[in-house]
């Protein structure tokens, strides 16, 4: 059945309509009962739709690339270093940053649910919460990387962090060559979300507009 795309699609579609109705019903009932403030829903949506996203993490990474003292702080007390830039709270209460090197590549997963560092990366993408990623990231990380078009040298150690507790991991990717003297703002443009999860690499200087 997994290979029967048409059937699968139709199935999803009818489920979604049913889900839409239930979510609408829940909003009505919770409001009627006074359990929720409907205006709080708008603020929550606005927060995660446009205020908290991977741009935050990119600025953290760029600062670490540009400032060795900040990098040292980030690698020893990530939570405090990240709070100093204004990113804190829900799903980022206990942060750990792990650094990629020419011999070591880090990758982050949550095999049990969808744990993800919200204050620096926003909400997780669908693939991060999906069964293919959660099942294979720990058993076949190179195979997963190839799904993302990433091939690493065969002797590169791959270190997978399964977020099974409330510690949240952020990957500090390697600074691309040819970026000497770049501002933090410009460096941040090279930092992709996936490079901070470990399923991608930062952009090369020629990939961004000058």
């Amino acid at each position: 059945m997994a290979h029967d795309h048409h059937h699968h699609h139709d199935h999803d579609h009818s489920d979604l309509s049913e889900t839409e109705l239930r979510v609408r019903a829940l909003e009505t009932i919770l409001t009627e009962k006074g359990y929720i403030d409907p205006k709080a829903l708008d603020v929550l949506i606005e927060t995660y739709e446009s205020k908290i996203g991977p741009r935050n993490g990119a600025l953290v990474v760029a600062k670490a690339w540009a400032n060795s003292d900040f990098k040292k702080w980030l690698l020893t007390d990530a939570t405090a270093a990240i709070v100093s830039l204004g990113y804190e709270g829900r799903q980022g209460e206990h942060m750990v940053v792990v650094e990629n090197t020419p011999t070591l590549h880090h990758m982050v997963v949550c095999t049990l649910c969808s744990c993800y560092p919200w204050p620096v990366l926003g909400l997780p993408p669908v693939w991060y919460k999906s069964a293919p990623y959660r099942s294979r990231a720990v058993a076949d990380p190179r195979g997963v990387l190839s799904d993302f078009g990433v091939t690493l040298p065969k002797d590169r150690e791959i270190r997978v962090w399964d977020s099974t507790a409330e510690v949240r991991y952020l990957v500090l990717p390697m600074r691309p060559e040819g970026t000497n003297g770049w501002s933090e703002e410009k460096l941040a443009e090279l930092v992709t979300r996936d490079s901070m999860i470990g399923t991608g690499l930062p952009k090369a200087p020629h990939e961004i507009s000058k």
Partner: peptide, 30 residues
């Protein structure tokens, strides 16, 4: 799910939006 076989490849979505439907926004917020 760690180590379970048969789920197929990971399917990254280029430029993925934070939500894929209005009801998902409400689901998160609720």
């Amino acid at each position: 799910m760690g180590g379970v076989h048969g789920f197929g490849p990971v399917q990254p979505e280029p430029n993925e939006p934070p939500f894929h439907a209005e009801w998902e926004k409400k689901a998160l917020a609720l």
